[in-house]
Amino acid sequence: MVTQIEIKGFDEFVKYTETIDDNGPPVLFYFSGSKLPDGNSWCPDCVVAEPMVKAFVSELNKNIIFVYVSVGDREYWKDRACPFRTDSRLKLMVIPTIIKWKGVQRLEGSQCGQRDLLQMLFEDDD
């Protein structure tokens, strides 16, 4: 039931958002630092949150689209002009961040690794 998609970078994110069907299933974006050769993100908070997020999403029995977005390397992310920070739809302050598209709900930083908060975010439509 959960469709998982991985995209890399801001341009791919923008292209993907242009294809979202407003009448389709809810779309949630998970923003994380890009992966290092060892398979983990350079972002320590993302490394902590990701196993919880992945486990939670894998247990969901809902029709949603879960999009993993790699925001790039540390230097790119830390730049104040990073488009993930400046885009009016996102205004990301920290990673990891999970955003419900076309909604105001979001989890930021350590909140992403808290099962009760994930449950509230993902079940909000029920």
Rank of each mutant, 00 (worst) to 15 (best):
K78Q: 15
D79A: 14
D79R: 13
D79S: 14
D79Q: 13
D79N: 15
R80K: 15
R80C: 08
R80I: 13
A81D: 14
A81W: 04
A81V: 09
C82L: 06
C82H: 09
C82T: 07
C82D: 12
P83N: 13
P83L: 12
P83H: 13
F84V: 07
R85A: 06
R85V: 07
R85M: 10
R85K: 15
T86W: 02
T86R: 09
T86V: 08
D87S: 08
D87R: 08
D87A: 07
S88W: 04
S88I: 12
S88M: 06
S88K: 14
S88Y: 05
R89N: 13
R89T: 09
R89S: 10
L90H: 03
L90K: 01
L90W: 05
L90G: 04
K91P: 01
K91A: 07
K91Q: 13
K91F: 08
K91V: 04
L92M: 08
L92C: 06
L92Y: 02
L92E: 02
L92A: 04
L92R: 03
M93I: 10
V94R: 05
V94Q: 08
I95F: 05
I95G: 03
I95L: 04
I95K: 03
I95M: 09
I95E: 03
P96H: 11
P96K: 11
P96T: 08
P96Y: 09
P96F: 10
T97L: 06
T97Y: 03
T97D: 03
I98V: 07
I98F: 02
I98P: 01
I99Q: 14
I99L: 15
K100D: 00
K100R: 13
W101R: 02
K102A: 10
K102E: 12
G103Q: 14
G103I: 02
G103S: 15
V104L: 12
V104A: 11
V104F: 09
Q105C: 00
Q105H: 06
Q105Y: 00
R106T: 06
R106C: 02
R106N: 08
R106M: 08
L107P: 00
L107M: 07
